[in-house]
Design a protein around this nucleic acid. Structure first.
Length: 274
DNA sequence: AAGCGGTCCTGTGTGC
DNA sequence: TGCACACAGGACCGCT
């Protein structure tokens, strides 16, 4: 669930608590969380290091540690990373990992256990395949209509699927792709080779507008997105079509349609989006 | 190469 | 009421 704005919100919040904190201890309650290390390897890698810098690429959270090490987290659908007081009670059934710091314990919760932790012995994250295969962020200046057109105009895939492909543009998930395609009047099932450069320009522009606006409002709350137990996600109020099945289209009043595109819930206005 | 379907998970919602 | 099942979806894998 968390997409670029939600991950950005989490990173901004964590910066205030974990920067310059030293890792005292690590507890892993669900070893499958670790994508490229055993529990022992992970613990030895982490303990004693300090959080020097935090960042984000696409939907990945990037933690730059001392000694040129990196720690990379992906929340997938339900992952939550909270810096909580050391004496606080964790929500045990969902607790998959704890990273004990000087003043906080960084707790990872994930009901569906889809999230991942990765470690890397350098700050050069291009060395990590999962991060290296990402394209630029959708809010980057170099995500332009010309770039998008070049990447997709020869493809037959539906435009919605391509905007969800993180190797074409990073950070867009199912909620925002529905919003972006509504905003640009483009039907989610349009084949990419029918899109004009003008439409690609509109998509790039709209993606930046919608994602930046959502970041301003601390992301979107759908189901369970929270930051430190406080409901985040003011952008929820601004969603035009996502989750609005049968509600009137904000532009023309026609009921919003719901269908599946590649298995993903897809909301759109059949009259506006051609 | 491109594109599609299955898989990982479990809490929630729906229908009989 | 209680049960069974569909659904939610990001990334990855394997097949065509």
């Amino acid at each position: 669930m968390p997409e670029l704005p939600e991950v950005q919100t989490v990173i901004e919040y964590l910066k205030k608590q974990v920067l310059n904190q030293t890792i005292k201890d690590v507890k892993i309650y669900h070893p499958k969380l670790l994508k490229n290390a055993s529990v022992q390897e992970f613990t030895e890698f982490m303990v004693g290091e300090k959080f020097e810098k935090l960042g984000r690429k696409g939907k990945f959270l990037l933690f730059y540690l001392s000694n040129n090490k990196s720690f990379v987290v992906h929340l997938r659908m339900e992952g939550k990373l909270f810096a909580q007081p050391k004496d606080s009670q964790p929500n045990l059934p969902q607790l998959l990992a704890e990273i004990e710091l000087d003043d906080y314990v960084l707790r990872y919760y994930d009901t569906r256990k889809f999230g991942t932790f990765e470690i890397l012995n350098t700050h050069d994250l291009t060395k990590l395949p999962s991060v290296n295969k990402l394209a630029m962020d959708a809010i980057d200046d170099d995500f332009t209509g010309v770039y998008l057109y070049d990447r997709i105009h020869h493809l037959k895939s539906k435009i919605k699927n391509l905007l969800l492909d993180q190797s074409i543009v990073a950070g867009i998930g199912n909620i925002y792709v529905n919003e972006i395609l509504f905003d640009t009047n483009i039907n989610p099932t349009r084949e990419a080779n029918t899109l004009t450069l003008k439409e690609c320009n509109a998509i790039a522009h709209s993606a930046k507008k919608i994602l930046n606006e959502s970041i301003k409002h601390s992301g979107t709350t759908i189901h369970t997105f929270k930051v430190n137990d406080v409901q985040a996600g003011g952008y929820q109020e601004f969603l035009q079509v996502h989750g609005k099945r049968k509600k009137p289209c904000p532009r023309c009043g026609q009921p919003i349609a719901f269908t599946k595109v590649n298995g993903r819930g897809t909301y759109y206005c059949p009259r506006c989006q051609k």
